[in-house]
Structure formats: structure tokens, C-alpha cells
């Protein structure tokens, strides 16, 4: 992780933004991170919301759904990277074909987790991205 200007002296918590059009999935990801070193700074249900939240909350890590109404995940990834190149993005999607994964990675995603997923798979995927 790059150290940010607003680091508060001590070890900074990783700031996580959750993007998924399903409430249930959002809450699941949120719950799984409650006790960790990760601070959930926001949740968004589509790309446009995600961009706006990202501007305000300056996340280090984003979990990103792909199939969403109003700006899908792929487009949102490239916009987020433009906003903050050091941002790490974990795609969490049911789309299981390879071309989609390549496309997401090419836009700047750092990892790919298929739905459905277990908490353990989620934590492993996140850990791989931030440590």
C-alpha cells in the first residue's frame, strides 16, 4: 500500500468501498470485514454511486460487482483507477468467462472472485490484494 497524505501517524486502516447491486451481498462483505483491519468506508449499488463515494471517502480497496444497472463494473473500474491509481480493486462477479476477467484486469482490477463465494474465499482474496 502506498502511504497517503492523510495517514494519521499510526498504522492506517485499509479503507474499503463495497460496490454491488445486491444489498445482501453488500452486507455480507461488510459483515465479513467487521473485525479485521479493514474499515468499510462506504457501499454503493451501482457505478455512478461508487464513483461519487470514492471521491468523498478515498478508499484503498474496492470490491466491485460487474453486472449492475447504471454504469457497469468494467467502466467503473477504469474511472476509479483514473481517480486514484494506487487503488486496489477486487472484482466479485458471477460472470465466469475468461474474456470478462481479462477485460476487468485490463481496466485495472487486481483480483477476481467468483460468486458465489465463502467468507474464507473472500478474506483470502482481499488478503492477497492488500498484504
Amino acid at each position: 500500500m502506498s502511504t497517503d497524505s492523510n495517514a494519521d501517524g499510526g498504522r492506517r486502516q485499509v479503507r474499503l468501498l463495497i460496490v454491488d447491486d445486491s444489498n445482501i451481498v453488500r452486507r455480507r462483505i461488510e459483515r465479513s470485514q467487521r473485525l479485521g483491519e479493514i474499515e468499510v468506508v462506504g457501499t454503493a449499488s451501482n457505478g455512478i454511486e461508487a464513483l461519487e463515494l470514492a471521491r468523498r471517502t478515498d478508499p484503498d480497496l474496492v470490491t466491485m460487482d460487474l453486472t449492475m444497472p447504471q454504469m457497469d463494473g468494467i467502466e467503473c473500474i477504469s474511472r476509479l483507477i483514473e481517480l486514484k491509481p494506487s487503488m486496489r480493486i477486487l472484482v466479485i462477479s458471477a460472470l465466469a468467462d475468461k474474456a470478462t476477467a481479462v477485460q476487468a484486469m485490463e481496466q485495472g482490477a487486481n483480483g477476481f472472485l467468483h460468486k458465489p463465494f465463502t467468507d474464507r474465499q473472500l478474506n483470502d482474496a482481499i488478503a492477497e490484494l492488500i498484504f
Binding site: K98, A101, V102, Q103, M105, E106, G108, A109, N110, G111, F112, E128
Partner: peptide, 19 residues
């Protein structure tokens, strides 16, 4: 795109293999 990703820092071997 995929070939380019192979050189990237971002891509881990297993992930790259799987996609």
C-alpha cells in the same frame, strides 16, 4: 490485453492461468 497483463505487477500466476 491478456499478454500485456502477463507483464503486469498486478497479475499473480494462478490468477493469470485461470483467466
Amino acid at each position: 490485453k491478456y499478454i500485456r497483463l502477463l507483464w503486469g505487477e498486478r497479475a499473480r500466476e494462478n490468477l493469470m492461468k485461470s483467466i
